[in-house]
Amino acid sequence: MPLSKNILNYISYFVLLTSYLALPACGTVDVFEKHATIPRQIWKSSFKPEITFNIEPKDTTTRFHIFIVLRHTDAYRYKNIWINVHTESPNGVVQNQPLNLQLATDNKGWLGSGMDDIFEHRIQITPPRSPLSLSAGTYRFKLENIMREDPLKNVMNVGIRLEKAHLEQAE
């Protein structure tokens, strides 16, 4: 009898632990993120990866912050990167936004998070207090390297991240 009681206790603990770990996965997703791999970590200006997101009608009341996500190795030679972001909205309107993104400073070094010799940057490109409302439909982001050095070495991948703004951030 004690053996079966121990087995039931183990099963109960297993079910409790599994429920504890699985239930947070049932929440809503507040982030959409997609990346494009840079071939051989050499970003030629002719390679313009396209990232698409589909905004559902239920998400049109939500406001979003947009981030550029960039991964590079420690061998990347610059403290910044110039990227032209071409954004096409569902109604076909295209906007071009050249961005000078700071990746490092003399005092702090790399500003992104790092592990070994790989660094990742999530740089917000929407104003912090002005998240965007997006219409339902497909958004296309084309990311273009506009640095003077062509090709640009040691860039691993680049992407777009959409984060749902929380109410206290939006005000």
Rank of each mutant, 00 (worst) to 15 (best):
D117F: 09
S133H: 13
Q41I: 03
A36V: 04
L99W: 03
V85C: 08
R122G: 05
S130R: 14
N54D: 15
G109K: 04
R63P: 14
S45N: 10
V69S: 09
G114R: 01
Y78F: 14
S135C: 14
H35W: 07
W110F: 03
S133I: 08
F53V: 05
R129L: 13
E88P: 06
V94H: 04
T52S: 13
K34F: 06
F53N: 02
E120G: 07
L103P: 08
F32H: 12
F119W: 15
L132P: 02
T87D: 05
K34A: 08
D116I: 12
P131R: 08
N107T: 08
L101P: 02
K48V: 02
N84C: 14
Q102K: 13
I83K: 01
P39K: 06
R77A: 11
I66A: 06
R71L: 01
F32T: 03
I123N: 00
E88S: 12
A75N: 15
P49F: 01
I125W: 02
P39Q: 08
D59I: 03
S45L: 03
I42Y: 08
P98L: 06
I42D: 12
T138W: 09
L134K: 05
L134G: 01
P127C: 13
T52N: 12
N100A: 12
P49W: 01
I55C: 06
T37P: 04
Q95T: 14
L103V: 07
L134V: 06
I83Y: 02
H35E: 07
Y139A: 11
L101Q: 06
E33A: 11
D74N: 10
G112I: 06
E88V: 10
R40T: 14
Y139I: 10
F53C: 05
E50G: 09
N96D: 15
N91L: 10
E120D: 08
T126K: 04
I83A: 02
L70W: 01
K34I: 01
Q97G: 06
I125H: 00
K48C: 05
S133A: 11
F119C: 08
R71W: 00
I51M: 04
G109C: 08
A104E: 12
R129I: 09
Y139W: 11
I38M: 04
D30N: 15
P57W: 06
K44I: 08
E56V: 10
Y78C: 00
Q102A: 11
N107M: 07
P98K: 02
D106Q: 11
T126W: 03
I38V: 14
L111N: 04
S135F: 11
N100D: 11
K44F: 15
T61K: 13
F64Y: 15
K108Q: 12
V69H: 01
S46C: 05
I81P: 02
T126F: 04
S113G: 13
T105M: 07
L111I: 05
I125T: 01
K58E: 15
S113K: 13
L132S: 09
I123M: 00
P98M: 04
A75W: 15
H121E: 08
P127R: 15
P49T: 03
A136G: 07
V69N: 08
G112E: 07
G137N: 11
E33M: 09
L132K: 12
F64A: 05
P98A: 05
N84I: 03
